[in-house]
């Protein structure tokens, strides 16, 4: 038996939307095994199904057929609290609540483990403080979240996901509102989580440069609804990125992993 230590597995999964009789299938018959401790970036054009794939894996959206297992548990059959102890999420949406402190926001991640009144034990507090230092936001701890910049807020949301203590973290375009240093901070934190905490991280992004530098694996969803996966340096990936994004004005350089712009005004 050469079974690998896979944490997430997709078995014959087709994703998309079903409305009455109409089926809009975005990806067909996907079968994947994902190992522990990997940083995976999902790339592809807008509206191609990156978010739907993430939503489907997270259990929020039903696949058209097939099953998704995390630790051997079918995500679409698992009770909400069990699922919440397996997968945590970070979305693009800006969270705004009056008078909510960063610490309280992060501590909310303990929800699946707490009793109905939600009082944190010393152990819970330890986990919260560890996540705060992992994401480097000790100084923001007692700040009101409405006073944070977008980058700081996203770090707090990631700390909240860490606190949820799941083996998988899914992030849907976590860096889309952030400036270049904010983006880098997020990717460094995520990479640290993979290497130090052995977490499996799956994120969708339009930041190809960051994705290619940090990811252990790239999932590319092409315009003709093909799913291509591989190491960022793999020829199959660099070639696919080229065919997917190259145009009259844009040329992907596989050697350096960057895009060159051509334009005339």
């Amino acid at each position: 038996m050469t079974e690998k230590n896979s944490i997430l597995s997709l078995k014959n999964v087709s994703i998309g939307y079903k409305q009455n009789q109409d089926e809009n299938i975005l990806l067909k018959n996907l079968s994947l095994e994902i190992e522990n401790g990997k940083l995976i970036c999902i790339i592809g054009r807008n509206g191609i199904g990156k978010s739907t794939l993430i939503k489907t894996i997270s259990g929020m959206h039903k696949p058209i057929n097939g099953n998704i297992f995390i630790d051997g548990i079918d995500v679409h059959l698992a009770p909400a609290k069990i699922l919440a102890s397996k997968i945590s999420m970070v979305y693009t949406d800006k969270v705004d609540a009056e008078n909510l402190s960063v610490y309280d926001l992060i501590a909310m991640g303990r929800y699946p483990y707490l009793s109905w009144l939600g009082i944190l034990s010393n152990n819970d507090e330890g986990i919260v403080n560890k996540a705060i230092s992992l994401s480097g936001i000790e100084k923001l701890k007692n700040r009101n979240i409405t006073t944070l910049s977008d980058g700081e807020r996203q770090k707090a949301m990631i700390a909240r996901a860490i606190v949820q203590d799941t083996s998988i973290i899914l992030l849907d375009e976590p860096t889309s509102h952030l400036d270049i240093s904010g983006r880098l901070d997020v990717f460094i934190t995520l990479k640290k989580l993979c290497q130090q905490e052995n977490k499996t991280i799956l994120l969708s992004t339009h930041q190809l440069d960051c994705a290619l530098q940090f990811a252990d694996e790239i999932w590319l969803i092409s315009s003709d609804q093909e799913f291509i996966s591989g190491h960022p340096k793999d020829a199959i990936i660099t070639h696919a990125i080229g065919t997917e994004f190259n145009s009259n004005h844009l040329n992907f350089d596989a050697e350096s992993g960057v895009f060159r712009y051509h334009y005339q005004i």
Binding site: M60, A80, A84, S88, Y91, D93, V95, M108, G109
Partner: peptide, 10 residues
């Protein structure tokens, strides 16, 4: 945090 986050936390 909104219903999306809340349901992801169980």
């Amino acid at each position: 945090l909104g219903e999306k986050y809340a349901s992801s936390m169980g």
